[in-house]
Structures are given as structure tokens and as C-alpha cells.
Nucleic acid binder design. Structure first.
Lengths: 295, 295
DNA sequence: TCCAATTATTCTCTGAATGAGTATAATTTG
DNA sequence: CAAATTATACTCATTCAGAGAATAATTGGA
């Protein structure tokens, strides 16, 4: 899963006509998984990868090799890059909100959440035979999608996708069975379980930007604070409070002024900043939530 | 990596005489990786696993199969269980601080950190030819082990192990080469890269207990708040502030009183609590660190 | 019986971080 | 030159984390 942000859209690199993530075999020549991945993706996409992180390893039933009884082990990765190079040929950048239209809450909650997802999920809950199962399904849906008093939690991307899968509301879930009765169109579907991998990656990234300075892997060398904010907003799918965002960035000393300002747009020109690469050495991780004792 | 806590020692299940983690092949009959793992470990160790989490997938050079040119892919997992059943036969519980003696800061920082590790790491840093590399090595060591003004960060378990590995201060690092000159005894070594997996798992667990109620997987059904605190302290390797720990647990409503109290020990008897399993449904994840805007 | 020791529990105080909103500054556009 | 637009700075209230003190309920021995 190769991620970049351009024009305030978080985008993933896809290959082929059928919405697949770039993937390839792990070969004997490769020194390690990460190294093999890097060389492979750079060959296939002419793209330098910055940050790379392992996501998850799958070997489930629907991943059995064609002829012989042989398992395919899929090891998925998340990679961040800058969206400068335009992709051509068989590959294309595509907004991840094409695949997860219910995840973009920047203009407010999308109407489809209440108008389509909520009634369908409630109908699915009511299909259950046992009352306690019905209650459990309704509760899971409410937590995942923030239905009743529950608020929207942008990190629950995978839980939401799995819920829709269970309820057979995404195309992938109806593939094996013949009775594709409702045939819903909830987001663009993908090859195999690639949309599930995407959901895992989005969730991981939305969580990670909160405690590690990984956003800067997606930024150009020099940027304004608003551009930085728009990028974070694109990833998290939510709008941020501008003054407080500035305070957060500045008090953590993540950036330094270049001394220059923007000139192109209307309004007061904004100061340009660059990422302080030194912070990667200085602070490794921020957070303790345990009440430590002095001695 | 199967973890339990008994007698205030965080312990891992080992097999064989040579300090190995329990492991086994993934077979065609297994429905999924997680399912295969569960059945395999339960067969081998007579142990019911509670919480299971995938750690990392390795396929590096030193994991090449013996005869044919064939890679071995190792998928490591972290599992939490209760230490009630005594293990017998070829398997044994062993404190993870046997393998990482520098990680237990409960009685304060172990003397070995300043007396042994610091001088050896500084000597290793000075081996470097280039001054900037020397400075970088010293800085990395200071951050990882909290040498100068840097404090101790209990989550950097893997970074610390990797640093000691690079500096050839753990036995595993000197295996391939003939010149095992210094032959240091920094913790008990393990088969293959099992100690590295352990480090990964400890780091993951120390991080996770801060934002997910996983500690309770390690507790008996009923416990006092001090017992709970001692367990968290065993895992994190640090002492906690008692009143603040209580406040943290209570305000999150993680536990409920049973109505009973302990009777066996001296001092005022403590109330007994049990975990509120309902919280697993209620709050999925706590934290946002982004300055969200209202609308 | 009563005091010391021990452990449990509650409360207070302080400073830092967070959420929310307002005020001011420097541009472009008509 | 005023209005619109964007950037930046400041204020206030609330919550949360760190630290320590005070009080409660036991046991063990003098």
C-alpha cells in the first residue's frame, strides 16, 4: 500500500484495471523482506519509497494457490512517499475515499452514513435469530459508525469494513455465493482482499500520525502550516482546529522556519517551514500514560 | 511468545534446554494462521491462550533452510495467559528479565547499566572511524539507555537490544564470526533470533498496556488493585505511583468491586475487584491527540 | 489492652496540556 | 482605499497528570 497526498486527497497506488494494490513475489535473491519490497516497488512504479512499515501477514482460506494444495502467505506493507512523480501506464493514484466513501468526514459526516449504512446495518442486525445477537450487532454498528451517542472514531476503519463485510454490504463479501441479491454499491471494490489491507493501512496511519512525525514523509521539503494541516486532515478524514494545530506543531518543535514566505496566493502570505529531521533522533516516542513514581 | 505474570515476574514459556520459544509449522489443515497457532500451542503446552496478537514476520538471511535454497518465513505472535497451570516436562516459565537484565528498573536502574553497558557502548562508539559516526553512536546509546539528561523510556526494548547486537555485546551477535574476543555475558542468550522476537514482544506489550486493557488477560478473575499495579509494574519494569494508579483505573471504570476483601495478609484488608468485560465493547480506543474542530 | 507497624484508601494541590474562541496582522482584489 | 482573505497571536476555562499528605482498617507483639 503506497500512500501519497496530493490536492488534499490521500491516494494509493493501484495497478491494472481491476483495482489491485502493487504486489510481487519474494525471491531468493532478496536480502530481506523489506529490502525485497523496496526494490520490487521501485522497479514497478518508478517510485522511491520513504517510510516503510509492515502491516500484517495473511494466510487465510481464500488465499489458497490455484492448482496444488499450497498456501500463499501474503505479507502486507504500508509505504509513504511524495506524490510528485505523475504515475503513468498501468498504474494510477486513486483517492482512498473512492474505496471507503464513508470515511471522509471533513465536510461533516457523509449523508450516506445515516441514509444508507445505518438502515442497512439495522436491517442486518434484525436478521439475527437470537435477541441478544441482535442487540450485539446493533451495538457494534453504533460504536463503529458513531450512531447513537457514540462519536465518530476515525481509527475504526477496519472494524467498519469488517462490519460491512459481515453484513454482506460490500461486493467482496458476495463473491463466493451465488445469491448476490442486493448487490450494493458501497465504495469501489478491489481484487482479492486488497480492500481489507487498505483498511488496515488507513487505520494504522491514522493512529500513527498522532504520536510519530510520519506526516512529513508525505510533505514536500518546504511547506506552510496550513498545507501540513490539510494533509493531516486528508489522512484522518476530519477537520482540525487551526490555532490549536499550530500550537501543537510548534510546541513540539517539529518544524523550523525557512525565512521565506509564500507569494502566490491571496491573503496574507504564509511562512514556509521545513521538517526538523533532528527530532527523529531527539525524541523517539512521546507518550507515557502510566503514573510513574519518582524513585 | 507466551506471557504470564507470576510472583511479580513477567515470564515467558520456553521449550527445550537451549532457551527457545515454542514454535511450529503452519500446516495445510489449519484454517488460518491465528487458528493454527492456537491449536498448536495448546497441544504443545497444555495452555489455553487468551489474547493473541501478531508481532512481526521475518525472512532474513540467517533464516535460510538447511539444504535446499529455500527461505523460512517466521511469523511471530504474542499471546497472554494466566500462569495458573504449572508447566512441566520440556517446557518452563522463565522471567524475561533473565534475557534482558537491563530492562528491570523496578528497584531503580540496575547497576549494570552504568557500570557495564555504558562503558562498553562508549568503547564501541569510539571504535568508529569517522567522528560524526562516533557522535551518532554515542547519541543513539544515550537515547536508548537514558544516559545523559535523557530519561529511561521503557518502550525502547528493541532499540536497546539492537544496539547491543550491533556493538557485539550479546552472544547472538558473535555466533557467525570466529573472533568471539570479549565474550560478554549480557543476559541469557536464545536460539536463533528468538531473543529479538522477545524484545519485539516486550516492547509491544509495554506500549499496549497504556491504551488497551490487556493486563487483565494476565490477572486471575478476582484481584486487588495492588496486585493489578504489581502486574503492570512487572511488565513495564518501573514502579508506579499508587494513588495515581488507582485514580487512573477507577476513572476509566475498568473494574468493579466484588464486595469481598482479602483476609490473608497483614495490614488493612484490600477490596477485591473484577474486570468489567463490558468495557471491551463500550470504549474501543481512547485516544485522540489531534486538535479536532467541532463542526 | 494498647501502641507500633503495615497496608489500603481518600483527598488536596499544582502545573501542564487541551478545547474553544477572539483579536490582530498582512496580503490581494475590485 | 475598502472589502475579502488568509495568517498569526493571544486569552480563558476545563481537564488531566504528577506529587505528596492525610486518614482508615487491620495484625502483631509489648
Amino acid at each position: 500500500m503506497v500512500v501519497a497526498v496530493a490536492d488534499q486527497q490521500p491516494s494509493v497506488l493501484t495497478v491494472g484495471p481491476a483495482n489491485a494494490l502493487p504486489s510481487g513475489p519474494f525471491e531468493l535473491g532478496h536480502r530481506s523482506l523489506q529490502f525485497g519490497l523496496r526494490t520490487w516497488v521501485e522497479q514497478q512504479t518508478d517510485h522511491q519509497l520513504g517510510y516503510i512499515e509492515q502491516l500484517y501477514t495473511f494466510a487465510d482460506r481464500d488465499r489458497i494457490g490455484e492448482q496444488r494444495q499450497q498456501r500463499v502467505i501474503s505479507i502486507s506493507y504500508l509505504a509513504l512517499t511524495r506524490a510528485e512523480h505523475a504515475a503513468g501506464g498501468k498504474r494510477a493514484w486513486r483517492s482512498w475515499y473512492d474505496y471507503f466513501p464513508w470515511e471522509d468526514h471533513r465536510p461533516g459526516a457523509p449523508p450516506m452514513v445515516v441514509e444508507i449504512l445505518q438502515p442497512r446495518l439495522l436491517a442486518w442486525a434484525d436478521e439475527a435469530s437470537h435477541p441478544s445477537l441482535r442487540r450485539e450487532r446493533r451495538h457494534r454498528a453504533a460504536v463503529a459508525f458513531g450512531f447513537e451517542d457514540h462519536g465518530w472514531n476515525e481509527e475504526l476503519v477496519l472494524q467498519r469494513y469488517e462490519l460491512l463485510y459481515e453484513a454482506a454490504l460490500v461486493e467482496e463479501a458476495t463473491r463466493g455465493s451465488l445469491q448476490s441479491a442486493s448487490l450494493p454499491i458501497l465504495g469501489t471494490s478491489m481484487t482479492a482482499d486488497h480492500r481489507r489491507i487498505l483498511a488496515t493501512g488507513i487505520a494504522r496511519l491514522r493512529s500513527k500520525i498522532k504520536y510519530r512525525p510520519v506526516v512529513f514523509e508525505l510533505m514536500p521539503p518546504v511547506f506552510t502550516l496550513l498545507q501540513l494541516q490539510r494533509t493531516v486532515e486528508a489522512l484522518s478524514g476530519r477537520l482540525l482546529h487551526k490555532p490549536n494545530f499550530r500550537r501543537l506543531i510548534e510546541q513540539q518543535e517539529l518544524v523550523e522556519e525557512t525565512g521565506e514566505t509564500t507569494a502566490d496566493t491571496v491573503g496574507r502570505p504564509a511562512k514556509l517551514f521545513r521538517f526538523r529531521h533532528a527530532v527523529l533522533d531527539e525524541r523517539v516516542v512521546a507518550g507515557t500514560k502510566l503514573p510513574l513514581s519518582r524513585s
